[in-house]
Nucleic acid binder design. Structure first.
Lengths: 164, 164
DNA sequence: GATTTTACGTCAGTCATGTTGACATATATT
DNA sequence: AATATATGTCAACATGACTGACGTAAAATC
């Protein structure tokens, strides 16, 4: 009877609500990545390759540094994945025109095809979720997820996402 | 001028909107997991340990099978992490009362403390995002993320999340 | 023009966390 | 009594992170 959970305790309700929101994000993300993972297995690529293909596809000509900054991994980690993608002809590098130290990254035709293929299943998943949820819910989704992004570089990240 | 991107093409806008939603989820999840990762490093635990502590904490007395079903990993993978947590006194097992083959999982006092500590930073992050976004946005967040969960076992997952 | 910094690549070793496959043990079910 | 289930365990391997050290070309600075 003095159990904190059994009384109508607004603090507990709040904590419970937050815990549910956390689990929801866990499960949603798990299933959100399942589709691409499945496809990439056929190419002997993993999630790391997916991320590279995704971001290079969205930012053609981006430099290695920019990619490292987005992925938040070490250059040694990136290099194994990236040089694999280059060797197998999904990504190509061109020397920077202004700064010739830079290696600018582009998808090859084959890379673009794979990117499309993988992206499609993910877009369809999200499109379905958006359709079921409705426009207002989509706006809420954006607001909350934006708030989850680290405040100290939220603007940088948002610019990167929204820049078309 | 015939560039599909340059005309007011609703299909392109839709695709762009979806791509932005996908990146938003990527970045939000990245920062959502950063806090716990940081804390767990001090204990020489990783994200895998976190997941076990989280779900055992939320479902005291759950069996190993149930945990495996949630995490979607092999028992061999789980075992390394789980036996580590048991050995170090964060989780304990008790034989199932009805079915004595089952090992029911519980957090120890120490485990509960760690769970609280880690959970707190994540709850605070989500609480801030919720507060900034407002109640209506939170409802939208829930709707959309629910829609992202694999439809074939969405009900099972939702029951697990909502069951208090 | 010499020096320093920057962007990138690479070698080598380690760790965390996932996988497959095979086998063991206790208990429940048929 | 035979079979199925829940769990544990050993061994080998893959992926994708990490640290640390070193190299090279080009830009920036003194």
């Amino acid at each position: 009877m003095t159990d904190v959970k059994s009384v109508n305790n607004p603090l507990f309700l709040r904590e419970e609500e937050l815990r549910q929101a956390i689990e929801l994000l866990f499960f949603a993300y798990r299933d959100f990545t399942a589709g691409p993972d499945e496809i990439l297995k056929d190419y002997n690529f993993g999630r790391a390759h997916h991320r590279v293909i995704h971001f290079v596809g969205r930012n053609e000509g981006m430099t290695v540094s920019e990619l490292l900054d987005i992925l938040r991994i070490t250059k040694q980690s990136l290099n194994r994945v990236l040089s694999n993608l280059i060797k197998r002809g999904f990504v190509e590098q061109r020397q920077g025109e202004e700064d010739r130290r830079q290696r600018c990254l582009y998808l090859t035709e084959e890379g673009r095809m794979l990117e499309q293929k993988v992206s499609r299943v993910q877009r369809e998943l999200v499109a379905n979720a958006f359709r079921e949820a409705g426009g207002e819910a989509v706006a809420g989704y954006r607001k909350v997820l934006t708030g989850l992004i680290d405040e100290t570089n939220r603007d940088t990240v948002l610019n990167r996402i929204l820049k078309t």
